[in-house]
Simulated assay, not measured.
Amino acid sequence: MGKKLLFIFSSFVLLLLASGFWLKSLIPPPQDHHALAQTLPADLDYLRQRPGKNRGKILAVVTSTATLGDSGKSTGYELTELARPYYVFVANGFDVDIASPQGGLPPVVIDNDDMGPFDYAFLNDMEAQEKLHNSIPIEQVADKNYRAVFFVGGKGAMFDFPDNPAIQRLVRGLYRDGKVIGAVCHGPAALANVTMENGEALVSNRRVTGFTNEEELFLIPDAREIFPYLLEDRLRNSGAIFEPGPAYLKRVSIDGQLLTGQNPWSTWPVAEAMVKALGYKPVPRAITPAENTVEVLLTYEQRGIATAGKRLQQMQQQESKAIDRRLLAMHGIVAAMRGEIGKSLDLVRLLARAGKYEAQ
């Protein structure tokens, strides 16, 4: 009996090891970040499409908060959530100023796994870095100078955006004048406490989104103790019609001149939606492999694995529709961590198909 149990256990361990090696073979190595780090704005073909006529100014607002409350954990604005909209606005003919509650150089969060050409180009962009190092104190900002404002995400925004009188005044003035207000991820915290002249909350009965409770609590289980509130709760309590999408996938809510994105994966579409809201057709942009992967994942969430598999095959038959297999694997791991075993196995199947298509 003991030998039989030992044989079964050994076979199980070998099966697990073999599965692990197989899964590892499906995940490509990370990008060459050393090479990517050399990217300059001049290397981005996208920016060469900038129209000759200047279309006015957009203000990007980032947090000045460097620590998550009393936790001692560092925070700041998310680099990718500033760099990508910055270049969307620039490529579409707008000048961009950068402001923060305290002014000066704001704290930043850089996730190397998320970094791409636009993000490294931003770090090497002398003009952008000059604006960033000397960000305008928000109390010195005049709303009349801007056609739109974009509130950049980053967990620090939860602390210094909602109750800042200068931010409230800026948003109220822009909204009253019919200008465009955008925000992504934790950026919508700037909208949660804005009261209009009639005494109603700005977001009351407005369709908005932002980083959801589900997303926050998965990443930080003790978020309710660390943050003064959860963003979804705060927006709902202010009367918003909160529109959550699937966790860690793109979602953009548009309610007139108010445009909000749920999380970092919503950054590109919310910035381009702002360009449309300002009356222009966004210039063409090469869709990234990560965005293609998010489309496949959304198809899976909405229509199941069969349709997602067909979508994946269609994409990979086009050279311009590359897939980020590392991101697909990450979502499979997250599903497993959340106990969604069926979903995790489905995503592994999609991952295997993606590897097979790329090898053909």
Rank of each mutant, 00 (worst) to 15 (best):
Q314N: 15
Q314T: 09
Q314K: 13
Q314I: 05
M315S: 12
M315H: 10
Q316W: 03
Q316N: 13
Q316L: 09
Q317K: 12
Q318H: 14
E319I: 13
E319Q: 07
E319Y: 12
S320Y: 08
K321C: 07
K321L: 04
K321T: 05
K321A: 10
A322C: 08
A322L: 15
A322V: 13
A322T: 15
I323L: 01
I323T: 10
I323F: 12
I323K: 01
D324K: 02
D324S: 05
D324A: 06
R325M: 04
R325C: 08
R325T: 02
R325G: 07
R326M: 02
R326C: 05
L327K: 07
L327M: 11
L327Q: 04
L327Y: 12
A329H: 09
A329P: 03
M330F: 15
H331Y: 09
H331N: 09
H331R: 12
H331F: 11
G332M: 14
G332E: 14
G332Q: 10
I333M: 06
I333Q: 08
I333T: 03
I333V: 13
V334E: 02
V334T: 10
A335S: 08
A335W: 08
A335D: 09
A335K: 03
A336E: 01
A336L: 08
A336V: 01
A336C: 06
A336D: 01
A336Y: 00
M337I: 04
M337F: 08
M337D: 10
M337C: 09
R338A: 07
R338V: 02
G339Q: 03
G339Y: 04
G339H: 07
E340C: 04
E340A: 07
E340N: 10
E340F: 04
E340S: 08
E340L: 14
I341A: 00
I341L: 09
G342N: 13
G342Q: 13
S344F: 05
S344D: 09
L345P: 05
L345K: 14
L345Y: 07
L345H: 14
D346L: 01
L347F: 00
L347G: 02
L347W: 01
L347P: 06
V348F: 10
V348M: 12
V348N: 07
R349P: 06
R349M: 07
R349Q: 15
L350C: 02
L351G: 06
L351D: 00
L351Q: 04
L351Y: 01
A352V: 11
A352G: 04
A352I: 05
A352C: 06
